[in-house]
Amino acid sequence: MLLIPIFFVLVFKILPMFGLVIAFKDFKIARGFWDSEWVGFQVFQDIFAKRDFGRAVRNTLLLNSLDFLLSFTAPILLAILLNEIKSIRVKRLNQTLLYLPHFLSWVIISALAYQLFSVGNGVINNLIENLGGNRIPFLQEDNHWLLSYLLIGVWQSMGWGTIIYLASISSINPELYEAAFVDGAGRWRKVWHITLPGIRVTIVTLLIMNLGRIMGGSFERVYTLANKATTEYTTTIEVLVYRWGIESGQFSRATAIGLFQAVIGLILVLIADRIAKKLGEDGLL
């Protein structure tokens, strides 16, 4: 059973690492992978001097930091709320409805978003106008787009994220809740003194792993929700890699910026792991 995931890791994770040498070459398709001229760190100096690079780093950090604050805490709160539901049928129904967005591609989600929130003929804006309000440019103005981007991301990811936390909650000894009830603890006291400490290890582990994605992000999410009216926050590192690598054929630049992104992500994970160990947690390594 391990052969398939091991094969996947080797083919799609390990072997492509050899392609990172392109970041240190003036790569030309006609000259091939090994015969292209070696230029050292010249490619990195070129991309660091580009205005688009600084903008992409800023937007990537901004979008991912805000998304991290919302999308990391939402599954924890949702898992606690679902755990408090006593009816098994109601709990399963809510779980199914909340998990469903995770299985939709960002192409479908963005299409639904524009059908709902478009200024011209969006369902939500039609409803607002019929109620006497003014149309809101949810996806056609930079600041509104940023807020919509974050909320759509929370909606898409929070249901799936609750699976891990619900599994962690289910491992807590029920006798602790019974003892707390005998001592007169209310529902929120149980959550604060039993549930949250019980899933602390899970929270710290996922926190460390998610910090490594601060410099990453989803290309599909940004690219499909972007439009010509919103250009302030839609240039991220992932989008820049696509523009330089696929659209412009500047493979050395695209590889260099991807390598830069991966190194920063690794540094963030190591720092978070060290801090977690300083605070008495197990960490990842």
Rank of each mutant, 00 (worst) to 15 (best):
Y114Q: 13
T231F: 06
L66H: 04
M158D: 06
A30K: 12
I169T: 02
A30H: 06
A256D: 02
T224V: 09
Y149Q: 00
L146A: 02
S218F: 08
L104T: 08
Y165K: 04
E129W: 04
K277F: 00
F68E: 04
K13F: 15
G280V: 04
F117I: 05
R55I: 07
E84K: 03
L97F: 09
G249Q: 02
V191L: 14
R31H: 10
S87M: 05
Q42F: 07
F48K: 03
S252G: 09
T231N: 11
G40H: 12
L3M: 14
L3I: 15
F44W: 12
V191K: 09
F138H: 01
L166V: 10
T202L: 05
Q45C: 06
F117T: 03
N143I: 01
P197L: 06
I85L: 14
F18Q: 13
I246Q: 07
T96D: 05
D273G: 05
I109Y: 00
L81W: 15
T195M: 08
L2Y: 15
P5R: 09
N83H: 15
M215T: 11
S157Y: 09
L82H: 08
V222I: 14
F68Q: 05
Y242K: 01
V204Y: 02
G217R: 01
L176S: 00
F8C: 15
Q45G: 15
E37T: 11
Y149H: 02
M1R: 13
L112T: 13
E178Y: 04
E220L: 05
R58A: 11
S36E: 08
L63K: 01
R253W: 10
L131M: 13
L176Y: 05
Q45V: 04
I264S: 03
R243K: 14
V201I: 09
T73V: 13
F7A: 15
D67Y: 10
I108D: 06
I76A: 01
I275T: 05
V241S: 07
T96W: 01
V43K: 05
V154T: 06
P16D: 08
R58G: 14
I237A: 06
K28F: 06
V57K: 00
D26R: 10
W244Y: 07
E141K: 04
W244C: 00
L279K: 03
T73I: 13
F24Y: 08
L63I: 11
S148M: 03
L10Q: 11
V191F: 10
Y233Q: 02
R187A: 13
A56M: 06
A180E: 07
I267Q: 01
I109P: 07
D142S: 10
Q115P: 01
A254F: 00
F53K: 00
I172C: 01
A179V: 11
G186W: 12
L259I: 05
I169G: 00
D26E: 12
A180T: 06
K86M: 07
A23F: 03
F117S: 05
I6V: 15
L284S: 08
I194T: 07
F7M: 15
T224L: 03
K86F: 04
G161V: 04
P174S: 12
R89K: 11
G283R: 01
